[in-house]
Design a protein around this nucleic acid. Structure first.
Length: 388
DNA sequence: TACGACACATAGTA
DNA sequence: GTACTATGTGTCGT
């Protein structure tokens, strides 16, 4: 799915702006029977960013609502995530964000986070813990485009961590009843200041592929999968990601993204995974390893995606959100699924190549794609990520 | 059946 | 090795 807009953006001089939204779900999802699935109780992380084309830093941006000709100055662009029922966009599903304390700590809803366009300045990902902080925190003025604030420039990407769906999709596991699906949405909001009743107006969003949110423990579904095989050891990596099936990743392209189709095999990787609980040993996992991780610098590593930079390397994110290109072709998977998946369970956390600015090609995805060889890499990594 | 709360297990880190 | 933290998951009650 591509980016949907509810109006248009343009520079002061009238130059129209095309917005690209990128979202990547780094963990929590896996392909089960060909469908993107996650557990309501497990955490997922979603990294999002956007880019403007053309990008003229320092130029005032105006937003013109659909069906109107009245331009409003944009003081800042914010991003947030939400979820909706697949066949009913009006029905939203609440997302909750936990602190590391989980039940003991407060929960909140993912809030809007001020971001600069990816093609503006490089930045790092931020976000980790703050559960809300970022959100309204500093509202910087963006008038000029962005930025403005001296030292503390807003980041160009934000990762929402420890996100869970408030409720599961209906009819999970009931093979006969119609399975309900959700879509994750990455939204881009414009801060129009006081010129409108609502200071924030949603100007664009990108939806992920449809997904199933299971409400019960993995063990409950294990039995269902018959097809599966034994469980191989999959190894999920504990914290990181669990289920990410690598396989998925590949699929992902096709799968989530747009490609639908083709996917054949899939099952829950978990089968394996669960079989053997997290063992990291599994494969080599590693590729990413240490270095990468560390390099990441952030404490919690998850957010950093060095890979991208280096592109090839790392993994491919799962692109749940569609993008237009599918980069690579779907990897083949087929029979091997099983194994593959297992291996893949571990996918890298990397995912989104950082789209850093530099590489910010037109489309968000290409970059990542670069990795021609990601496949291998993927294997190693621990979690999966889906890109939007 | 799904959800919330509690509790335990495991991996990673200090 | 030990303690602590973060997270996945099992279980129970509703």
């Amino acid at each position: 799915m591509s980016v949907q807009t509810s109006g248009s953006l343009q520079y002061e001089n009238g130059t129209p702006i095309k917005v690209d939204i990128t979202g990547t779900v780094d963990k929590g999802f896996f392909l089960a029977e060909g469908e993107w699935t996650c557990y309501r109780r497990n955490y997922m992380t979603c990294a999002c960013s956007y880019s403007l084309h053309p990008h003229y830093p320092g130029t005032i941006v105006h937003f013109i609502p659909q069906g109107s000709s009245q331009p409003y100055q944009v003081y800042g662009l914010y991003m947030s995530i939400s979820a909706v029922v697949a066949d009913n966009d009006q029905q939203t599903i609440e997302l909750v964000q936990h602190t590391p304390k989980r039940d003991k700590g407060p929960t909140s809803k993912p809030e809007k986070v001020l971001l600069l366009p990816k093609n503006s300045v490089p930045s790092h990902h931020v976000g980790m813990y703050n559960d809300n902080s970022t959100a309204s925190g500093a509202r910087a003025v963006y008038q000029d485009g962005y930025g403005g604030q001296g030292g503390g420039q807003p980041p160009t990407e934000h990762t929402f961590e420890r996100i869970q769906f408030k409720q599961a999709t209906q009819n999970n596991g009931k093979r006969r009843a119609a399975q309900q699906y959700y879509h994750l949405m990455v939204e881009l909001w414009a801060d129009l200041g006081s010129s409108t009743a609502d200071k924030f107006v949603k100007i664009a969003y990108r939806k992920s592929e449809k997904m199933i949110v299971r409400g019960r423990s993995p063990g409950h579904y294990q039995s269902e999968k018959r097809r599966s095989h034994s469980g191989g050891p999959g190894g999920s990596s504990g914290t990181l990601g669990s289920y990410g099936a690598l396989g998925i990743s590949d699929f992902s392209h096709s799968g989530l993204l747009g490609g639908s189709s083709t996917y054949n095999g899939s099952y829950d990787p978990r089968g394996s995974v669960y079989g053997t609980p997290r063992s990291h040993d599994v494969s080599a996992e590693n590729t990413m390893t240490s270095e990468d991780d560390k390099s990441m610098g952030h404490n919690k590593s998850y957010l950093y995606y060095p890979g991208s930079m280096y592109d090839s390397s790392q993994s491919r994110p799962l692109e749940m959100f569609a993008s237009r290109n599918d980069h690579e072709s779907p990897p083949a998977q087929s029979s091997t699924d099983t194994k593959v998946k297992s291996e893949y369970d571990i996918t890298p956390r990397v995912f989104q190549p950082p789209l850093g600015d530099s590489r910010r090609p037109p489309g968000p995805f290409e970059a990542k794609t670069t990795s021609g060889g990601y496949y291998p890499t993927i294997l190693s990594s621990p979690s999966t990520s889906l890109t939007l």
